[in-house]
């Protein structure tokens, strides 16, 4: 509905009332075509699940630009890591990795030890595949979004929401596994009188959602904001209609923000993974609170 100013065929130019704001939003938003601006656009198929399928019937599952980006990221991930994985399979214990395998090993070791092991502690091995995949997925989405004509999938609330739902389930399953079903339910009632359970349990269930929700909003806002800032800086020159302004203000600043975004791409992927593993660690910690105590002791 809001995509009205940017329907296909309308990006011909200034003749239309195409405000800079609309153009920026068009770039930041999802769309049903993959535009390569001066050269044209590829219309993406629209489709929906047949109404006969139970539960998901009638769902609009059109392939959008973001979906294509996600697929590109998925293919890139599978290609790169199958090569790296096969290298490791072929490699002896005494050999050190080289080239791409070495770079990826640094990232994998960082996530495995500094993020997963440091925050989850005992039993972190079970969660490393998930954490590694989430990290690489977000990182590659962020980086591919910086390529011209690309679109940052992680700048879309739907994508980050889905990822955080996965995190949410991983966290809750870890919690149930660590405390048992009874312990998990007992945790929801947090030692209040049984007559108050009817009030406490819904609030505690809402509480389970609010932490990952904070995580989602953070990631989404950062990725979307970075792009909006870059595009705004570029559009300053169009608004002022001055090449001097373009050369002096827009290009240097946009370049700076662009470099910043490469850093932010890593940072956001790291923070999402970090928060997920922190929540897993908090959910699986026996006798909540002793971890903080340890930390406090270690600090003083």
């Amino acid at each position: 509905m809001a995509t009205a100013p940017a329907v296909p065929g309308e990006h011909s130019g200034e003749a239309e009332a195409e405000t800079p704001g609309a153009v920026i939003m068009h770039h930041v938003m999802d769309s049903n075509e993959f535009a390569f601006e001066p050269f044209g656009a590829v219309e993406l198929p629209r489709m929906s699940i047949p109404a006969s399928v139970p539960l998901l019937g009638g769902l609009d599952i059109s392939i959008t630009k973001r979906v294509v980006m996600i697929w590109i990221v998925a293919v890139a991930l599978v290609l790169i890591f199958s090569i790296v994985g096969s290298k490791y399979k072929a490699m002896g214990v005494r050999q050190a990795p080289s080239g791409m395998a070495n770079t990826m090993e640094a990232l994998v070791e960082f996530i495995r030890l500094d993020v997963a092991k440091a925050n989850i502690g005992h039993g972190f091995e079970k969660h490393t595949p998930f954490l590694l995949t989430v990290f690489m997925f977000i990182l590659f989405c962020n980086l591919f979004g910086l390529i011209p004509y690309g679109s940052t999938a992680t700048g879309d609330i739907n994508v980050t929401l889905t990822l955080s739902v996965f995190s949410f389930f991983v966290i809750q399953i870890a919690s149930v596994r660590a405390h048992g079903v009874v312990g998990f339910l007992k945790h929801l009632t947090v030692g209040t009188h049984w007559a108050l359970w009817i009030i406490m349990v819904p609030i505690e269930i809402i509480g389970l959602f609010t932490k990952p929700f904070a995580l989602t909003v953070r990631l989404f806002a950062n990725m979307a904001a970075g792009h909006i800032v870059i595009l705004s800086l570029i559009f300053i020159s169009f608004i002022i209609k001055s090449y001097v302004a373009a050369a002096v203000v827009s290009v240097p600043f946009a370049t700076f923000i662009y470099l910043l975004e490469i850093f932010v791409a890593f940072l956001q992927a790291f923070i999402f993974t970090m928060l997920t593993s922190l929540f897993i660690g908090l959910a699986t910690a026996h006798e909540g609170g002793h971890d903080e105590h340890d930390t406090a002791v270690a600090h003083h």
């Binding site: 819904p202 609030i203 609010t210």
Partner: peptide, 10 residues
């Protein structure tokens, strides 16, 4: 972390 949201959501 999620206290405000939890309280208002509840």
């Amino acid at each position: 972390i999620g206290l405000g949201l939890q309280v208002s959501g509840g």
